[in-house]
Simulated scan of single mutants.
Amino acid sequence: MIQQTPAFPAPEWLLRDQLIGAPSTAVLEWLFHEDSLTRRLTRLSDDHFCVEPQFEGWQPLRDDECAALQLPEGSEGWVREVYLLGRNERWVFARSVAARRALEQDGLHMDELGTRSLGELLFSDEAFARGPLQVCRYPAQWLPETDAQQGLWGRRSCFSRGNLSILVAEVFLPTAWRAIEPNAPLHAQEGR
């Protein structure tokens, strides 16, 4: 469970056309790919993909999450943090959040996903519409301690169905870039 502290301000989440000094083509392609990341990672891993839950529960959402979901600061929501693994390596850290009231009214049971991918659920339900992808250099203090590194690329988008919005953030770990581009740097340092 990762908490925002006042000493660490939220990053600036940017749309593709707002990036200055964009990263490599391969990095951009993965960050802004509109299809299911679960499906892409499953293909990349030759079907050796799984989800490793880290935390699930109700807690106050971070300020940037409240803003993205158009909620008052300090609103409570369901938080799900998982690793997406390929070939038994942690490739992506994912954090998904939804407002408590909207989730309870909608009847979606995020607490019952277990090791099932949330992305699989969202992309299989045509009632969910995906908002624009945004990216940032994800703050190290928001990552689990074992993977807390500065400069990792993260992306997020909001999936909406009626009054329910689920904000999904995905952070690409160096192991993912090694699998995507075996001869490339661990993660592109160029760009904003």
Rank of each mutant, 00 (worst) to 15 (best):
H109Q: 14
H109S: 13
E73G: 13
A22S: 10
R95Y: 02
L44D: 02
W142D: 07
G162S: 14
C66V: 06
L121S: 04
V135W: 01
Q54T: 11
R87V: 09
R39W: 04
G21Q: 01
G119M: 06
V82C: 09
S96T: 00
L19T: 01
A140N: 01
L84N: 01
A99L: 05
D111R: 08
P53T: 01
M110D: 06
A99E: 07
L28P: 05
L41P: 13
S96W: 02
R130A: 15
G151F: 00
L121N: 00
F93R: 03
G154S: 11
D63R: 06
D147L: 11
V135Q: 00
V27N: 07
A102K: 05
A140Q: 03
E65M: 09
E145G: 10
H33I: 13
L108I: 05
E81H: 07
R137W: 01
R80F: 10
Q54I: 12
L19Y: 02
F55M: 09
W58S: 11
Y83A: 00
T42W: 14
T146H: 08
E34Y: 08
L31C: 13
L71N: 01
T115M: 11
D147I: 09
E73Y: 02
Y83W: 05
R116D: 08
H48S: 15
L108W: 10
V51A: 03
S24Q: 03
R43W: 07
L122D: 04
E112H: 11
S157I: 12
E73S: 15
T115P: 11
R95T: 04
W91D: 00
L61N: 06
E120V: 13
E112P: 03
L69F: 01
E145S: 13
S45V: 13
H48D: 15
L28F: 02
V27Q: 06
G114H: 03
R40I: 06
A102F: 10
L121G: 02
D47P: 09
L71E: 06
A94D: 02
Q18P: 08
R62A: 03
R87A: 13
A67S: 08
R130K: 10
C158R: 15
Y138M: 03
R161A: 15
E145W: 06
W153F: 08
L164Q: 12
Q150I: 09
S124K: 04
A68G: 13
P23D: 04
E104L: 13
Q149R: 14
S45K: 07
G114W: 00
S96G: 08
Q54A: 06
S96M: 04
E89F: 14
L71G: 05
V51G: 09
W58K: 08
A99Q: 07
D111T: 08
V92T: 02
H109R: 15
R137T: 07
A129W: 11
P144K: 06
E126P: 14
A67E: 05
L121A: 07
R43S: 12
N88T: 12
P132A: 11
A99R: 10
R155C: 02
T25F: 09
F49E: 09
D106K: 10
R90F: 08
V27H: 11
Q18M: 10
E145A: 15
E120D: 08
M110P: 12
L143R: 12
W91T: 05
E34P: 13
P72V: 06
L84S: 04
P53H: 05
E65W: 01
A129F: 11
F93N: 02
C50E: 15
R40G: 12
L37I: 09
R39A: 15
G74E: 00
A148L: 00
